[in-house]
Every structure is written in C-alpha cells, then in structure tokens.
C-alpha cells in the first residue's frame, strides 16, 4: 500500500512538471510575418515593331516617385531591364512617377496612376495593408508612345503585370 501511495505521489509530481513544461512552451509571441504586405504595381516596357509587340530592355532606366516630400529614386541606372515594380500611396488617390528610359540622354516622362484604395487585413502577424484598383493612367509623351492598363487589381500577388508602357 505504501508503494502504491509512493507511485501516486510520483505520478502527481511528474504530472505537475509536465503541466509547467507545456505552459512554458505555449506563451504567445507574435508570429513572424512571412508574406509581402506592400502591393507592387508591375510595369512592363514594350515596343510595337512591324506589327508585333516585343519586350524592350531599357538601357539605363530611372524611375522617380514624385509624391513624397522630395523626389525619391526608386530605380537609378537600371540596365537592360524591362520589368519594374513600383508602389502606390494609400494616402492619396493618385501617384506620379517620373520615367527616363536612358539616364544618359533620353527625355523624361511623367506617368500618373489614378486608383481606388481598399483596406485589407493580412493576418495578426502582418497586420493591415492596402490593395488598389487602377482606374486610369495618364502620361506625357516626350519619349514614350503610350501607356495602357493590363490588370486593374494591384495586390501582393506575384506574376501579374498591371501596366504596359510602349516606346
């Protein structure tokens, strides 16, 4: 009988240790955010040549955001690239970007994106962010030919081209 009581006490002690162990392992901390929360406006550059649309690698491209306190270079001297990822501001309904295809000599163009904003909850780990819906794109035509919207929804999904720029 004494042996049985000893076993009961030992079982109780082990049970208590296990309770502390599980409790210590279950204190919540914020999980790391493992997904992008800033949607990118993906831009592709093309040429319309001999009845066909072909990719155009810009030789020394410059993209500058004009809608912050001072002009901010987003791409500077990007060599032989035709895909660019820009951002839109959730504080405004428009975003203006300056584009220079070749920083050495080509003329500058201004592209204005007009859009709607939509608040989006990602997760408790990542918090809130915004998705956008493009409604119009305006541009000057100093060096480029035209700008068209290809996919209106600007989100964190990968592999989507939103705007095509033709030179």
């Amino acid at each position: 009988m004494a042996k049985a009581k000893c076993h009961s006490i030992l079982a109780g002690l082990c049970w208590s240790v296990a309770a502390v162990w599980f409790a210590a392992c279950n204190t919540a901390v914020r999980n790391p955010c493992l997904e992008p929360t800033v949607p990118k406006l993906n831009v592709g550059c093309y040429q319309y040549r001999a009845g066909a649309v072909t990719d155009t690698l810009l030789p020394n491209a410059v993209f500058v955001s004009l809608d912050i306190d001072s002009a901010r270079y987003w791409y500077y001297g990007a060599d032989k690239i035709n895909k660019f990822a820009l951002v839109l501001s959730p504080r405004r309904d428009t975003a203006r970007w300056l584009l220079q295809a070749d920083s050495g000599f080509s003329q500058m163009d201004t592209i204005t994106f007009i859009y709607e904003r939509k608040l989006k909850f990602y997760s408790n780990a990542c918090g809130y962010g915004y998705d956008f819906l493009l409604s119009r794109v305006l541009s000057s035509r100093n060096n480029l030919d035209s700008v068209t919207i290809f996919t209106k929804e600007v989100s964190t999904k990968a592999g989507i081209e939103n705007v095509k720029i033709f030179f």
Binding site: T37, V38, S65, D67, I68, R72, V87, L88, S89, P90, R91, L119, F121, G127, Y128, G129, Y130
Partner: peptide
C-alpha cells in the same frame, strides 16, 4: 487600431 506602411515611408492609420 491599425497603422500601415505604404513602402514609400508613409504611414496611414485608422480604426476598424
């Protein structure tokens, strides 16, 4: 209460 970062250094905040 939430705040978001727009990628350009701007902060937006609000309440759901």
């Amino acid at each position: 209460a939430y705040t978001t970062n727009d990628g350009l250094g701007g902060i937006t905040s609000g309440i759901t």
